[in-house]
Design a protein around this nucleic acid. Structure first.
Length: 371
DNA sequence: GCCACCGGTGGC
DNA sequence: GCCACCGGTGGC
């Protein structure tokens, strides 16, 4: 009964502005949603009964969307009705202590202009767990045009890699191009007020290569900088069976402040978990497109040749048998997801960053109910 | 001529 | 609709 969204919902505010838990109006796109209720006016006792909900409309017909309006109740999601805590949130979070709304309360509904009060036993959470017992989804109620919807939002795997943005930010603290370090040198010289060395023709433009690797602690959700791409890839390849936690960094615990926050001071891209470590001798390179629409993945051979696809890798290995030990399956061209809410505001995105209005009109507004 | 970069598309 | 893949091309 659950459809997942492709990624979790992560909202980021402008720098210096407190991040707030999204209301439905500001929730980013969920392309996959499930609707299973009937219009409230229908009076049909269907799944509505099992999904007992509080009215979203007060007696004046004004929508009331309080913090717990969409709470589904139950025990499964340790993070409560809104899923995991905000990524921005850096304080330690203790999900089991999260106060839960009362589960048996009068349910007020508006039916044909008069209110009906009922007492109902509420069903368990409609949240599923992954193999580790961690919630894979949380649910959000969406009310629109008199219909109730349940939007299922996947809980993100706490693993991320970030890409530096362009505006006045340090680029390339770590060489991304294994044979081309000019971008870093260029930026450092610029920062020091020295004459910038012209960028070599073959260089990837600065600001569009990964300069920081980070992993989110599975326990406290703070972001920890991972010092090297190799170490990052090691964590990423095992993160599904061995979630990252703060104590895996030397002399670091969940009590320490986060290394960095998920905000729009950087452009963040979410990597997929489980991607194999790059075979020895090769380097995996991710390049953000100028319009921030997506990234491109390359594997760079020891000789500096860029391989753009698995087929190119296969033909390369065929003509260079000395690399036949590199498993073809370890070359993954899966690209990370570019988090639009962390892109610069002037980024010429192929699909513009939705405004609040856009979200409410295009993303949250359900498609016409069929059937 | 090389290659960084982009756009299109076919398969799923 | 997404994404892996690759052909085309403009700048160097």
């Amino acid at each position: 009964m659950v459809i997942t969204a492709s990624s979790s919902t992560i909202l980021i505010g402008e720098e210096g502005v407190e991040i707030h838990r999204p209301s439905e109006e500001s929730t980013p796109t969920h392309s996959h949603r499930r609707r299973w209720s009937t219009p409230i006016e229908s009076g049909v006792e269907s799944l509505d009964e099992r999904l007992t909900f509080r009215s979203l409309t007060d007696h004046d017909g004004v929508e009331q969307r309080g913090a717990d309006d969409f709470y589904l109740g139950g025990e499964i999601s340790a993070w409560g009705p809104f899923g995991p805590p905000l990524l921005k949130e850096s304080r330690p979070v203790a999900p089991p202590q999260m106060p839960l709304p009362k589960r048996t309360e009068a349910v007020v509904e508006l039916r044909r202009g008069r209110s009906v009060t009922r007492k109902r036993d509420l069903p368990p959470y409609l949240t599923t767990l992954d193999c580790n017992g961690r919630p894979r989804f949380h649910h959000r109620r969406v009310r629109s045009e008199g219909r109730l919807e349940i939007a299922s939002v996947a809980v993100s795997i706490p693993e991320i890699v970030s890409v530096r943005g362009r505006e006045g930010l340090r680029i390339g603290t770590e060489a991304e191009n294994f044979s081309l370090v000019l971008p870093n040198k260029l930026m450092e010289e610029e920062e020091l007020g020295k004459a910038a060395t012209p960028r070599a023709k073959k260089d990837v433009a600065p600001g569009r290569v990964v300069d920081t690797y980070a992993a989110q602690c599975d326990a406290c959700h703070k972001w920890r900088v991972i010092d090297s791409q190799e170490e990052y890839e090691d964590i990423r390849s095992r993160v599904l069976e061995d979630p990252f936690t703060c104590d895996k960094k030397k002399q670091v615990s969940c009590e320490d402040p986060a290394d960095l926050d998920y905000d729009s001071s950087r452009t963040w891209v979410i990597d997929k978990p489980g991607i194999p470590k790059t075979p020895k001798g090769f380097k995996r390179s991710l390049v953000l497109r100028k319009d921030y629409s997506k990234m491109d993945t390359y594997y760079i051979t020891p000789a500096g040749k860029k391989l753009r696809s698995r087929n190119e890798v296969a033909s390369f290995i065929e003509t260079n048998p000395e690399f036949k030990d590199a498993p073809l399956g370890d070359f993954a061209f899966t690209v990370p997801k570019v988090m639009e809410d962390t892109c610069p505001p002037d980024a010429k995105l192929a699909s513009p960053i939705p405004t609040t209005d856009d979200v409410s009109e295009k993303s949250i507004k359900p498609k016409p109910f069929k059937g």
